[in-house]
Amino acid sequence: MLKVYGDERSGNCYKVKLLLNLLQQDYQWQAVDVLKGETRSAEFLAKNPNGKIPLLELEDGSFLWESNAILNYLADGTAWIPHEPRLRTQMLQWQFFEQYSHEPYVATARFIRLFQGLPDERRDEYAQCLLGGDKAFRVMEQQLQRTPFLVGEQYTLADIALYAYSHVAEQAGFTLHAYPAVRAWLARVASQPGHLAMAC
């Protein structure tokens, strides 16, 4: 059986849980507490030398890490990865956008505000995260004004990847009032059969 190492408070780990639920795939969940430094233990680093979660252990005992790589492995051959090459590449485009232009700002702002209590020494960084996150939401808003999902009519891994931290953006201090298409998309994703809510 597949085994997922993760922290339920993490949006990156939530992506994997959401997809597994959509796929109705059985798996074991191994809780890993990032705030207690459990990803830096020698035991964990032997599994993922980068010391991050989520981490997927396959049936043969090998490991996959990086959330979007795990998503692509799990969804291979399913409807969550478009068959048509152009659409599939657009899905990847949004996944790269999520990791480079969205998650570094939205997830970091959430961590600083929700888990660290917005300490004085990180307030300037937090302010920059809010600016970067708003830019990402503006980009998403433009696309979602044109199409119901990020890759046209189809619910794909692009939506799963970007939903994870977008739907808890208010915990990071973002307001999405200026992004009605993003808000409608969040509701659309949450209404999909098999949807799973985040733990917090």
Rank of each mutant, 00 (worst) to 15 (best):
N48T: 03
A197M: 07
P82G: 08
Q30W: 01
T108R: 10
P82N: 03
E84A: 14
F115R: 12
T78I: 11
G6P: 12
L71R: 00
H177T: 13
L186D: 06
L18T: 10
L87I: 05
A197D: 13
P85C: 03
I160E: 03
Q99N: 07
G117Y: 10
F96V: 09
E141L: 14
L131A: 13
L20D: 07
E170A: 14
I112V: 15
F63T: 02
M140P: 15
H102A: 07
K36C: 11
W94Y: 05
I70F: 02
N72Y: 13
C129W: 01
I70M: 02
F115M: 15
G132K: 01
T78G: 09
L22Q: 10
D26I: 04
Q142P: 13
W29K: 02
L157I: 04
A187H: 09
K52R: 09
V16L: 05
P49G: 02
D60S: 05
E125V: 14
Y100K: 04
R146M: 13
E8T: 08
E59A: 15
A161C: 11
A107K: 00
R88G: 03
S191L: 03
V32I: 15
L196E: 04
L56Q: 02
R40K: 13
Q192C: 08
A127S: 14
D26Q: 12
S41M: 08
R123Q: 15
M91L: 10
L56A: 03
N50E: 11
P82A: 09
A42V: 05
Q90N: 05
A107Y: 00
D124F: 07
R138A: 15
E170V: 11
Q128E: 14
T78D: 10
F115Q: 14
Q25M: 10
E43M: 01
W185Q: 06
E66L: 06
A158R: 01
L92F: 09
L20C: 12
L64E: 06
L196Q: 09
F149Q: 11
Q28L: 06
L186C: 08
P82V: 11
D33V: 13
A178C: 08
L56E: 02
N12L: 05
Y100C: 14
L92G: 00
K135C: 12
Q93N: 07
E57F: 00
I112Q: 10
P82I: 07
Q128N: 11
F137Q: 08
W65T: 01
A178N: 10
